[in-house]
Design a binder for these strands. Structure first.
Lengths: 140, 140
DNA sequence: ATGTATGCAAACGATTTGCAGGCGA
DNA sequence: TCGCCTGCAAATCGTTTGCATACAT
């Protein structure tokens, strides 16, 4: 199912700003801030407004087409999200991101923590940070 | 080793604002924004400035005495950090946080991801979100 | 045709910076 | 004493809101 279809089924309209945001993120392949999306988006759609980027991201995130990436310093980066539960792997040098699936690997850890703390774990946030293979070679 | 000693050994001075920030976070036991720290801090130290809260947090974080907590909506919460590598467990209702140690539980997952993606994983961000036991009872 | 979504301008709020004076070591 | 650190005021930057118009359905 295409993203347009997913958006539409969720009750939202397919508009130019939303299309542009998706296209920019698709090409980027790394987290982009609203500002960056705006600047790149203007090259595709001249009259794009920054406000529409914010509002598009809000909608796209709610529908699950886009996700926010948390870094120690910045938390304003957005990337395309695949359907389902995924975690991300982020290259600290070039910013490239890769998704990898699964929460199942954490189930042991979660069960253990629940037992020890009495918490009931409902959700989690996991990101791996490192160097992608091209960056491993180009810098030592 | 006390936090004062850790701060001092890292080459920083022990000052009133820094003391106040630590004290406020100690008492809170949940993530507090700079604003919240500032408001509570003023009750201890009348002439405390918001700017000093920001600057204190910056130093304390660099030294590893304080850490930032990432939530879907807000990323401006700070809590006390224990020495060493810890993850946090956050109650989505009352905000209480608990730390739990260890990266070893992720080593299997990490090795697997490295193999599949060619990334070299150096660091990670993990937070568990759920309900602490008091909150499990008081709300159904 | 209808009401959602847009773009602009302005409001808003959080964080940072410049600077003169204060205080920790 | 020396220079790091503070508090204030103002600058800055990211994000949100109000509103009239444009466009998707």
């Amino acid at each position: 199912m295409s993203w347009e279809e997913r958006l539409s089924r969720a009750g939202w309209r397919i508009t130019t700003p939303r299309r542009v945001v998706m296209q920019v993120l698709q090409r980027a392949g790394r987290p982009l801030s609203p500002q960056e999306i705006y600047m790149r988006g203007r090259r595709i759609h001249r009259s794009l407004g920054l406000v529409s980027v914010y509002r598009s991201l809000e909608v796209l995130e709610r529908v699950g087409l886009v996700r926010r990436v948390h870094q120690e310093d910045r938390c304003d980066g957005y990337i395309l999200a695949s359907p389902g539960h995924h975690h991300i792997l982020l290259c600290r040098r070039c910013g490239r991101t890769v998704e990898f699936p699964g929460a199942e690997d954490l189930s042991g850890l979660i069960a253990q923590v629940e037992q020890r703390t009495g918490f009931q774990v409902e959700d989690h946030l996991l990101e791996l940070i490192g160097l992608c293979s091209p960056c491993q070679r180009s810098k030592s």
